[in-house]
Simulated assay, not measured.
Amino acid sequence: MSQIFNLRLATDTLAVDAQQLGVTPEQLQHIHVKVSASIIQQPDPQLWLTYSIQLPNADLATQLSWPAWEQAQVSFTDYLWEQTCLECFIAGSNLVLDEVKKTNEAKSYIEINASPNGRYALYYFENYRTPPTLPPTPLLHKDGKLKTDKKSQAHINWSTEPTKPQNIRVSKLLPNNKLTTVINNLTACSFKPRHFYQRSFGVPLNQLPSYISNDSFSNSACIEKLHPCVILRLSDTVLYFASAHASPPDFHNHSYWPLFDYKAALSE
């Protein structure tokens, strides 16, 4: 089971963006971006996120910056939001905070950045874009103490076989001289449509602060809001996708974050 997030394109600059990319505004609005969120209990509890992007035509696909997966690239890296970036914001519920901690932690949140090539970053904010330093403050393991110690920084677990962009093969003539289209993996379970891109990764829950995830991650544990979002860079144009948008787009604005549905996300 999963909680599904269908992301919408921010339209503040829709006409300008379409003109820069040489397509119509309607074509941009037909970019489909979906994120599924699941709670995986084994071998260790993780929040598992799968990002799926489908572009409507080749004109957009040829302009999309989608760096190839490389195992050697997997590392904590800042400023990933300057290119195509898979993001997610996590906020805890103040229901689990005692009164002393409520003031300081009720508005804190975590930001996850991930590049299709394997690079990633996890950041901790005390409040809206606070502290305002760039790059932001890395999220540390619960027992991490030094911000400069890379071993203390939280990480993500990538799927061992990231899905590569799928395309329909060129047509060819069969022995009976009838032109037919040959498609890779044309089965109900494995076929992916043209210009389809996907990446999946898990966030170990034991890395998150205790007020977001307790050790057992029971139904009373504490992710209150989950805000998956995506930045797509096509040529020199940047497109922003989220469940809902501020104007101008601002992924950090809590007011637009969906509630986390634990029951829907619990994997069986």
Rank of each mutant, 00 (worst) to 15 (best):
E70V: 05
F5T: 02
L232C: 09
I231N: 14
Y51Q: 05
S65V: 12
G22L: 11
P209G: 01
L179E: 02
L226C: 10
Y256W: 07
A221F: 10
S93F: 01
I223R: 03
K263G: 00
A188Y: 06
Q42E: 04
K101A: 03
L86N: 05
F201M: 06
A61F: 11
Y240C: 07
P67S: 05
N206C: 10
A246Q: 11
P175W: 12
T24Y: 06
P165T: 05
A121I: 07
T13K: 12
K151H: 04
F89V: 08
V74G: 02
N94E: 03
S190E: 10
Q73C: 11
D143V: 12
P43A: 00
A242K: 04
I223G: 00
P165M: 09
H141L: 07
P162W: 08
L239N: 01
L179G: 06
N104Q: 04
S75R: 11
L86P: 14
R119P: 15
A15V: 08
S247N: 13
L266P: 14
F196R: 09
H155Y: 15
L55W: 08
A265C: 05
L122M: 11
L86E: 04
T163N: 12
T130C: 11
N117Y: 13
V35A: 09
R119I: 12
K225E: 00
Q83S: 14
S108L: 02
L239Q: 02
M1Q: 11
K102E: 00
D149P: 12
E87R: 15
T180P: 04
F191K: 07
P138H: 12
L7N: 04
L86I: 04
L122S: 03
F241T: 03
L95R: 14
P228T: 00
D250V: 10
V16P: 02
L97W: 04
I168A: 08
Y128Q: 08
S75M: 08
N104A: 11
A61T: 15
L64A: 09
F260G: 05
S65D: 11
D236N: 13
L86M: 13
S171M: 09
P204W: 00
K178A: 10
N185I: 03
G144T: 04
Q3R: 05
S220E: 14
K34I: 01
S65T: 10
T62P: 09
Y124P: 12
L226M: 07
E70L: 13
D215M: 08
L208T: 10
S38Q: 06
S200M: 07
P56C: 06
S152R: 15
L7G: 09
H195W: 15
T163F: 15
A72T: 15
Q153N: 10
S200R: 11
F241C: 03
S65R: 09
P135W: 02
S255C: 01
D215K: 15
N214P: 07
A121V: 09
S115N: 11
L95E: 02
D12F: 15
I4R: 08
T237D: 01
D78T: 07
N127E: 05
C229H: 14
F251C: 04
A10W: 14
T181K: 10
D250H: 02
Y262R: 13
L60K: 06
P165I: 01
T163G: 09
